[in-house]
Amino acid sequence: MPTMNLLQAVNVGLREAMRSDDRVVLLGEDIGRRGGVFGATEGLSKEFGAERVIDTPLTECGIVGSAIGMALYGLRPIPEIQFLDFIYPAFDQIVSEMAKYRYRSGGQYTCPMVLRAPAGGGIKGGHYHSQSSEAYFAHTPGLVVLMPATPFDAKGLLASAIQGEDPVIFLEPKRLYRAAKGEVPEERYTVPIGKARVAREGKNVTLVAWGAMVPVCEEAAGQAAEKGIDCEVIDLRSIVPLDAETILASVAKTGRAVIVHEAPKTGGFGAEISALIAEKAIEYLEAPIARVAGFDTPFPYTLEHIYMPDTRRVGKAIEGVINF
């Protein structure tokens, strides 16, 4: 089985989907000849031509809107937004049209498309190349929101997303593009949407994370183990639909929950998970639920390393719930 990084897994997943299904077309800024600014679509224009790997003008709203039109008429478009931070001009199309088509047409249409975007911080990109805005999309009924943390999941979730009937926001943690490496089967496989991955089993504390915060939690769990604290790490992978069952079963076992995400704390998706645990598993809790998150400020450039949760902050939260 070949070993590859997360970016290569996305690239391989796209190529495989395009080879097996001629309804799959890609569109976005600089994705053709250039192969995308990160290289996620590298080589695809050469293999599939400009008709299936469409370089668009710089119109995020137009990219998403036109992908919707293609999806309505039976294609499986995969638009790329160059950075998740650039998605806001397309917000109207995503929230008002893409998410609602199936519902408001009474099921006459589906809108099968996968909107890919590199997300999150860690590359010193500053305000507009670093944000994690998954909560906005999770708050919009009609969307599936995915964020893989491993190359295996990136390829498998992408395959599931492409074959589904509903629109998917597919967030790729750019910090892990090259940092996350792992074995990826050459053959086609799918990773189910709506099913979390238990990245590490443990008995004392449940850590819930997604994207680039998963390896941070795994490392923090390793450090906690040296102090005799046994942490379970849950990688959500699928933010919507949420695998409540896996989270609740883990909290029932450990009695302690620490939720870790990059986005600002207020209104972050961690709040939803915290509410879920409080509503459904409060009787198991040995300590208040803890959240480790970004700050309620714009994303900073120089102080990025302070803004983003790291093993030190996660470790402190673990000790906090243990020593409560």
């Binding site: 119109t59 709203c61 919707i68 039109g69 293609m70 309505l72």
Partner: peptide, 10 residues
Amino acid sequence: IPIAVGTALE
């Protein structure tokens, strides 16, 4: 408007 453009691409 952009959706119509997409249907033309299709």
